[in-house]
């Protein structure tokens, strides 16, 4: 088992390396570098930047030197100092801007995973054990709808209807009175009261997919000999379904979390833009539109790396849950 985890962690290293190269590529793609933008921006406002400061920044980020030197400096700054570079639009270090946002993104994604899981587990089990029943058809149909409706559209519809029906906008994660308040019990409750909306919206597509997967897996398992053995032992039907076929069908299900996670993170970014949530989405979009590349690149880097770690965790969890993998 330990060996398996080590193996997986080792496999992760080239992936993370690849991601960092890719993100650095994105940072470098637009013509010019952030310093030119920065200087231009400040000059436009009638301010001048001291030569010394420019020189200092140039040195710090290796500007003007070959790309691999710049890449190396960027990585070195991140790893040793947690310094992701500077955002010229905010005129702040990137690290000051991203961590809150990343935390909210991860919180929402994580809760969505839990939501997707629980809902899909119960509906999928129902659809499989009641194959070709009305409930099964409804679940299948909603499954398809859930897959076909992009979640930003759901968010838009929700915005529109809550505006029409209640005259209020469900956007954001906090009510105005808690927006800038320090953390308290009240603020947490307020957060939870707002949080379910993006979770449901984000979770719809994932749930639809997960129901389909679980239903198909469970249908494969329901008639396996070991289920009949358990039935022949006199195990009550309800216990039997959960304990035997569902237990086995869960394995591919857990492993799919690995690849639903990237989708959920993707979805959360675009839904956040629509619902104006204080997560990665709006800031990343703003950064990209203004070509504030250090900020954007860092976001993409962190989100991707955290996704890879999440995938790793789900794989390890799967391995631990399945005795066949645990013991091999």
């Amino acid at each position: 088992m330990i060996q398996y985890i080590l193996h997986r962690v080792l496999l992760m290293i080239p992936t993370v390396f690849g991601i960092s190269i890719l993100c650095f590529g994105i940072i470098q793609l637009p013509p010019g570098d952030f310093l030119t933008f920065y200087v231009a921006e400040l000059s436009a406002q009638g301010e001048s930047v001291p030569e010394a400061q420019i020189a200092q920044l140039e040195r710090q980020y290796g500007l003007g030197r070959p790309w691999y030197v710049q890449y190396f400096l960027w990585m070195k700054n991140i790893i040793t100092k947690g310094d992701f570079g500077r955002s010229f639009t905010w005129n702040k270090p990137v690290s000051d801007l991203i961590w809150d946002r990343i935390a909210f993104t991860m919180l929402i994604t994580l809760l969505t995973v839990v939501f997707v899981w629980i809902v899909a587990l119960f509906i999928g089990k129902y659809a499989a054990t009641h194959q070709y029943s009305l409930g099964d058809y409804i679940a299948t149909f909603f499954g398809f709808i859930g897959l076909a409706v992009p979640n930003f559209l759901l968010a838009l519809l929700l915005l529109y209807y809550s505006l029409q029906l209640f005259g209020l906008s469900p956007a954001g994660l906090f009510s105005p009175e808690y927006q800038d308040a320090p953390w308290s019990v009240g603020k947490w409750i307020d957060l939870l009261a707002h949080l379910w909306i993006p979770i449901v919206i984000l979770g719809t597509a994932g749930t639809a997919g997960a129901i389909r997967i679980l239903r198909a897996n469970l249908l494969d398992e329901l008639h396996k000999p070991y289920v009949i053995t358990a039935r022949a032992k006199g195990v009550p039907e309800r216990t039997l379904i959960w304990r035997y076929p569902v237990r086995v069908a869960l394995n591919p299900f857990i492993s799919t979390v690995g690849w639903t996670l990237p989708d959920l993170v993707s979805g959360s970014i675009i839904v956040s833009v629509v619902l104006n949530l204080p997560t990665t989405g709006p800031l990343l979009l703003g950064a990209l539109l203004q070509q504030d590349m250090f900020l954007a690149g860092s976001f993409i880097l962190l989100v991707s790396v955290l996704t890879v770690i999440g995938t790793l965790i789900s794989d390890v969890l799967l391995a631990w849950l399945d005795p066949r993998i645990r013991f091999s």
Partner: peptide, 28 residues
């Protein structure tokens, strides 16, 4: 088919073994 009476017969009064020992037991 899922009555208490039937379940008491299954496994208690009548035991059963099957063709495929490789798949008749749960691997979990």
């Amino acid at each position: 088919h899922d009555s208490e009476e039937l379940r008491q017969i299954r496994g208690k009064d009548i035991g059963m073994i099957f063709q495929e020992p490789m798949t008749s037991l749960s691997m979990m």
